[in-house]
Amino acid sequence: MQETPLQRRSLGLSVMAIVLTVSAAAGSVRGSEGGATLTGVVTFKGPIPPPQKVTVTRDASFCGSTVTIQPLVAQASTHGVRGAVVSLAEPPDQHVDASPSPTVIKNRNCSFLSRISATRVGALLEIGNDDPVLHNTHIRSEGRTLLNVAMVPHGPSIQKQVKRPGLLNVKCDAHKFMQGYVLAFDHPYFAVTDEAGRFQMAGIPAGLRRITVWHETLGTIQQEVIVPAQGEISVHIDYQY
């Protein structure tokens, strides 16, 4: 994926690109079996690019004559970044291998819901169309088509198994402004930040762990954290500007 100007600026800063705040007060640590719980928040205090208005050339009667695109959303009060994907960079070889649940991608109101998803290798992608217009959900990985299916109005859902890890780029060829991403992992240690930039990952094994954070416009950063054997640890990861 090409770097955006914002990504180049973020990555060009000092080596310690992330402010890490670790709080693990002995009195407040909660014991839990099977590793610790890592909670945190991803923030960005830099300027947020203004939303883009795109003219709709097809199905404007439903999608609207224009749509507003805003890939970078940060909460005004906390600077928490929505839709960042947090994961362990080097997951342990041994981990609980429960059957992964399906990841649902809906074509709804001429956008993908959810815009950002994270899933396991082996999980099913369930693609549906809630709109009264034709979409085609076209998923590529490293520029190569993995899936391209016509989704007629209120037609049947399509299921496709995720077979390998990586970044999946989700588009609609009929409505080019539609954009989604799915990050697929071959381990269960990942989470997507909420509206306030918060995330939580359970069962993290103890030790020195490297966390990767990906965002579609801010890019990718990493930071190490020492995880205790049990309890909860919180981190604050900041995309420095």
Partner: peptide, 10 residues
């Protein structure tokens, strides 16, 4: 490799 989708399920 192209925008032509599959209509097998439709």
């Amino acid at each position: 490799g192209t925008p032509m989708p599959s209509f097998e399920k439709q």
